[in-house]
Amino acid sequence: MPMQGFWEFLLSQQDKLIRQTISHISLTIISVLAAIAVGVPLGILVARRKKLSGAVLGVAGVLQTIPSIALLGFMIPLLGIGPAPAITALFLYALLPIIRNTFTGITGVDATVKEAARGMGMSQRQILFKVELPLAMPVMIAGIRTATVINVGVATLAAYIAAGGLGEFIFGG
Rank of each mutant, 00 (worst) to 15 (best):
167 G>H: 07
9 F>D: 13
101 N>G: 03
43 G>R: 00
28 T>I: 04
96 L>T: 05
71 L>W: 06
48 R>V: 09
161 I>F: 03
92 L>K: 05
43 G>S: 06
112 T>A: 09
91 F>P: 02
70 A>T: 10
120 M>S: 11
59 V>P: 01
133 L>S: 10
59 V>N: 03
121 G>N: 13
139 V>N: 10
139 V>K: 09
87 I>M: 08
133 L>N: 09
104 T>Q: 12
26 S>F: 11
5 G>L: 14
4 Q>L: 15
62 V>Y: 12
101 N>F: 09
58 G>C: 12
165 G>Y: 05
115 E>C: 03
74 F>Y: 14
141 I>S: 02
149 V>R: 01
25 I>C: 08
122 M>T: 09
30 I>L: 07
70 A>N: 00
20 Q>K: 08
10 L>R: 12
94 A>M: 02
1 M>N: 14
32 V>W: 09
35 A>H: 07
64 Q>H: 14
146 T>I: 14
138 P>H: 05
31 S>A: 15
63 L>T: 07
155 A>T: 05
13 Q>I: 06
117 A>G: 15
76 I>F: 10
50 K>C: 01
51 K>D: 13
37 A>F: 15
153 G>M: 08
112 T>F: 09
71 L>P: 04
63 L>I: 04
96 L>C: 09
14 Q>A: 11
40 V>D: 01
136 A>W: 12
71 L>H: 03
38 V>G: 01
